[in-house]
Amino acid sequence: MSFSVEVEQKQNILCVRLHGELDHHSASELRAIVDRHLEEHNTKHIVLNAEGLTFMDSSGIGVILGRYKKLQPRGGRLIVCGVSAPVYRLFEMAGLFKVLSLEEQESHALQALGEAV
């Protein structure tokens, strides 16, 4: 309903742009879309753009950590960007920044992964 995902493959990086509310209900949609993409494309890294998120709860943490774990065997990284203050607070509480890196914008995240912008 009030959630949508936009994906774009840039070489071996999958850019995932989130819009709306990420809860337990919409998490399953995000999981399905990203996992299908990971199977079909040669993806090493994921850039998760949270700029369009208007709400997130702990189900969002679970689905993001789950995708991070999927990248581990590929030696990839997961970078989040466009994180609002409330979402930042949840990430912090869950200790997510121990495994994920944070960038302000998507272009910065791509640069950090060595992609020409």
Partner: peptide
């Protein structure tokens, strides 16, 4: 914190902590 009985469902175990 971080306890979940359903790790297979990708729960984070952060609900009560939040």
């Amino acid at each position: 914190p971080l306890y979940t009985s359903k790790p297979d469902l990708e729960r984070s175990g952060m609900g009560f902590t939040i």
